[in-house]
Design a protein around this nucleic acid. Sequence first.
DNA 1: CAACTGACAATACTTGAAACTTGTCAGTTG
DNA 2: CAACTGACAAGTTTCAAGTATTGTCAGTTG
Lengths: 196, 196
Amino acid sequence: MPRGPALDAEAILTATEDVLRRYGLPKSTVVEVAKTLGVSHASVYRHFPSKVALHEAVTRRWLSRSHQELADVAADTAVDPSQRLASWLTALFAAKREKYLDDPALFATYGLLVSEHSVVATEHITELLGQLTRIIGDGVRSGDFASADPEIEARAVFDATTAFHHPAHADQWGRAETRTAFENVRILVLNSIRSH
Amino acid sequence: MPRGPALDAEAILTATEDVLRRYGLPKSTVVEVAKTLGVSHASVYRHFPSKVALHEAVTRRWLSRSHQELADVAADTAVDPSQRLASWLTALFAAKREKYLDDPALFATYGLLVSEHSVVATEHITELLGQLTRIIGDGVRSGDFASADPEIEARAVFDATTAFHHPAHADQWGRAETRTAFENVRILVLNSIRSH
DNA sequence: CAACTGACAATACTTGAAACTTGTCAGTTG
DNA sequence: CAACTGACAAGTTTCAAGTATTGTCAGTTG
């Protein structure tokens, strides 16, 4: 008896997010997701081949939402490259920090999910590096930046700011000292890449 | 009946290192340390007030051994500051990487110990920042480096190289790409700090 | 007949009783 | 008498038994 809106993948993903938020990763089960939706757990398996695939999909959706706003900063060619790079790095740190401070347990849950689905994590990082490469490439073209290879430079900038975007360091992000530390690394990075 | 060399703190620390290496942190007990030394566990408590204090002492000893060689690089004023900073960063990464690759399980054990004894970790970082500050201060004085405040600059350099010294990233240190990534961050940092 | 379900085997997780560990101290020993 | 120990209470960890979860599929339903 299919009543109400037909069960679809998006509804299942949203229900899975709910369950992850309420129960955390270890206690979030496919049975609980199905219960939230008022269906049997077998129905969930008609849309996702396994719990792992479901978790991978929910992780991908979460990460892709989280780099949407960064894409806008990266694409805004009206702003000069130095400012654009500074804004992008600040936005990356701010987005992660806010997610962590808003709900540390949920942030930890997604941190676990990301580490369990390294393919998704790699795709996410590739996307971010693409955005960084674009900003740096624009800067080199306009003469603001000096770099032999924007792609390698992007990786170096990303690696140099690890402490401010890698979840392993999230427990430091609430401290005032960490905000200052970020400012100083951002200045260091921009000072390095700007042509002299 | 005290026979052989009297039981002293150093012997207990060495036995504790043995037990940590053989059993890992969760299964390393004071009883096992005592068994290794051929004494009762009550004897261990005559030298250390608690298991936590024992672990703190063993952690302090391990970290202080590990920054001994770095102190030499930092103090070698015969080498010019750029080279000295490059060598110091390379030595820091090399020391950590070798310890990790030599015995990943033991490295993880000490990583846990360090995180459980944050006071010791803070002291260790303060020591490393002191060495960095000295190199940068020398560079500013000789005109090789430009920096308003060597102490803040040292912190920024340390933070920018987090991916290559923080144990959370140890699982990447064996990869060839990571060595390249380190070279590029090291170049970025030196390019930033050198006066133009 | 497409969407869904109940029932099921295999595997993973919880739980509480037994075993072990920490830290103390009065007593032993050379 | 200083160094050490055995025995002990309080707290923590382990393990085996029961319980829950995953993933499948033949069968039901609108």
